[in-house]
Simulated scan of single mutants.
Amino acid sequence: MTALTGTERKNISVGAAVSIVLKQDQRSGKLTHGIVKDILTKSAVHTHGIKVRLETGEVGRVKHIETD
């Protein structure tokens, strides 16, 4: 299993398994794992990661995309 970085919108799709950093965890870098429900960033690329909403309702920037 390899991991893509989450800075390009084209790499992320609804239903994808990702690791995100929540706003309150930005200093610590703690990752939260989940499934993408919505992609919130409109631009094609974002240097800090594409912002998504997980199925749990948590919102954060994608750091890793889990691929098989």
Score class of each variant (00 low, 15 high):
Thr7His: 07
Ser28Arg: 10
Glu8Asp: 09
Thr32Pro: 01
Val36His: 03
Arg53Asn: 07
Thr7Asn: 11
Ile35Arg: 04
Lys51Ala: 15
Gly15Pro: 15
Ile20His: 01
His48Val: 06
Ile35Met: 07
Glu8Ile: 01
Leu54Trp: 06
Thr41Gly: 03
Arg53Gln: 15
Ser43Cys: 09
Leu4Ala: 08
Val52Arg: 00
Lys30Asp: 08
His33Met: 04
Val21Met: 11
Ala3Asp: 02
Gly34Thr: 09
Ile39Thr: 02
His48Cys: 10
Gly34Leu: 01
Val52Tyr: 00
Gly49Leu: 04
Gly29Ile: 06
Gly15Leu: 06
Gly34Asn: 06
Ser43Trp: 01
Gly6Asp: 04
Lys51Asp: 12
Leu31Glu: 08
Asp25Cys: 07
Thr41Met: 04
Lys23Leu: 14
Thr7Gly: 01
Thr32Tyr: 03
Ser13Gly: 15
Ala44Phe: 07
Gln26Ile: 14
Gln24Thr: 15
Thr47Asp: 15
Ala3Tyr: 14
Thr7Cys: 09
Ala17Met: 10
His33Pro: 03
Ile39Ser: 00
His46Met: 14
Val18Tyr: 01
Ile12Lys: 06
Ile35Ser: 05
Ile35Trp: 03
Val18Ala: 05
Ser28Asp: 08
Gly15Met: 07
Asn11Tyr: 07
Lys37Ala: 13
Ala44Gln: 14
Ser43His: 12
His46Tyr: 11
Val45Asp: 03
Ser28Lys: 11
Arg9Thr: 09
Ala17Tyr: 08
Ile39Phe: 05
Thr47Ala: 14
His46Pro: 01
Thr47Tyr: 13
Ala16Thr: 13
Ile35Gly: 04
Gly49Asn: 05
Thr47Val: 10
Leu31Val: 08
Ala44Gly: 13
Lys42Thr: 15
Gly6Trp: 00
Thr7Pro: 01
Gly29Leu: 02
Lys10Gly: 06
Lys37Val: 06
Val21Phe: 09
Val18Lys: 00
Leu54Arg: 07
Thr47Ile: 09
Asn11Val: 02
His33Thr: 10
Lys51Pro: 02
Glu8Leu: 11
